[in-house]
Design a protein around this nucleic acid. Structure first.
Lengths: 147, 147
DNA sequence: TCATAAATGATACCTGGTATCTGAAGACGA
DNA sequence: TCGTCTTCAGATACCAGGTATCATTTATGA
């Protein structure tokens, strides 16, 4: 849950401290860089942006932030794995293939539908992965060719 | 579409020939190995099973079989990519996390639901990726603990 | 302040996959 | 059946993204 009134990077650090992780300078640097991201990003992209921070540290930080629910993984259409700031709790993404924007899809009824379809196969659902690709509102307006 | 009455490996070869690929001994070997698979499998697993076939050949064969629609990719819960024989056409998988079985989900109405949810966000859907994880009928019967 | 556990960064390694290149094999017309 | 042309195969080098290892540094709490 992103809260207003204090910096996003602090919220990331808080999420780590809640889970017993220490407050260190490299982690703050990573958190600040992530907090400035407006889009989903690749791990390697983040690393290149932080030449002073070790590779392992960047990857470790991403991993624990995902565990803490502050970041989530995004699977791109080309199979690459990206990260983005997360509303905690289960949700999906509408990913724009034009501009890379991503919109969160929360509290939709796709889960219910899945459950009932799976039920019909006597299958007990424990999890799922869903990413939706397409064109966002802005890009539809800019490129109305196939709208 | 898998047809009855002639070997699956022949159907795989046919799918390749339809697309202009040649009928070669290594490809037949790969096709036969794939045809015997009852589960989704990793590329590397297939390769180890075929020590006489070059690494590149195995990967190339998988690639063109996917392009030809005879195989499809499966994203496992742990993020690994596997392959499995495909009913041609768009479908999803119910993947059992206990035994690895996978059931195809065709002609369900999840797409429609996606469309309408996306519509509400002024988002034009062009594609999606969906995998469903859980427990299949057989495993539910064997391990009724959390059924 | 100090002891201790945790974190860091350098680096080696691993996994899964692709690119390159040379020789071999299939396709096909004469 | 032969010759030619194209595709294919296999070896191997390479690459990307990520993890393991380990000596050193740092945060933390008594």
């Amino acid at each position: 849950m992103r809260k207003r009134g204090y910096p996003l990077s602090e919220q990331l650090m808080d999420a780590l401290e809640e889970r017993g992780y220490r407050d260190t300078a490299p982690r703050r640097t990573v958190a600040r860089a992530i907090a400035e991201k407006e889009r989903h990003f690749a791990a390697e992209e983040l690393r290149e942006q932080l030449p002073g921070i070790g590779r392992a540290t960047v990857y470790r930080s991403l991993k624990i932030l995902v565990e803490a629910g502050a970041l989530c993984r995004v699977l791109l259409e080309d199979g690459n794995l990206h990260y983005q700031l997360s509303h905690r709790g289960h949700h999906h993404h509408l990913l724009c293939v034009e501009c890379g924007a991503s919109e969160d899809l929360m509290g939709c009824d796709i889960e219910d539908r899945l459950e009932s379809v799976a039920d019909a196969h006597n299958f007990q659902v424990s999890g799922h992965w869903l990413e939706v690709y397409g064109k966002c509102q802005t890009c539809r307006a800019e490129l109305p060719a196939s709208a």
